[in-house]
């Protein structure tokens, strides 16, 4: 089970480092959104804090076994007024993960609610734990 997990959504050698990011800096105001990753028997779930965007501006793509999440955040201060005190920056969110062959890429689904993006990555059939029925002779 452990190895299976390991092959499916991670590439780290440390067991704590499941989802090694392959982020590259696009522009300085890009932010790396904090994520939680969960695994069940049938799927992986990636949950990311990405406040201030909307479902139309979030792009989730898979290429070369890399799952990439890009969320554009519009510059809301441009119309609101002058920033007098700034404790956090506003910019696009970006995050990427390497995933293995054990994901059914066609079945990936995502929802965005209250600033939280939730991406469901179903495991490929062959990777799901199966229960073998024992027949009586």
């Amino acid at each position: 089970m452990f190895n299976q997990t390991h092959n499916t959504i991670c590439c780290g050698t440390d067991s704590r480092d499941y989802c090694t990011t392959t982020d590259t800096v696009k522009r300085p105001q890009n932010y790396r959104a904090p994520v939680d990753v969960y695994e069940t028997d049938t799927e992986f779930r990636v949950i990311a804090d990405m406040p201030g965007t909307c479902s139309e501006l979030i792009v989730i793509s898979i290429e070369d076994n890399t799952l990439t999440i890009d969320a554009e955040v519009s510059d809301r201060y441009a119309t609101l007024g002058a920033v007098r005190r700034q404790e956090y920056g506003v910019g696009d969110f970006h995050r990427s993960f390497r995933i293995g062959d054990g994901i059914n890429a066609d079945g990936i689904a995502a929802t965005y609610c209250d600033g939280v993006l939730s991406v469901t990555l179903p495991k490929a059939e062959a990777r799901k734990p199966r229960r073998i029925d024992i027949k009586t002779a």
């Binding site: 609101l80 700034q86 209250d114 600033g115």
Partner: peptide
């Protein structure tokens, strides 16, 4: 939570990012 303060001619705006909070 971090707070930004924005000002226009008529209002002050205090903004905080609170994802997942209802």
């Amino acid at each position: 939570p971090a707070v930004n303060m924005i000002e226009d001619d008529n209002n002050l705006f205090f903004e905080a990012e609170l994802p997942g909070v209802t």
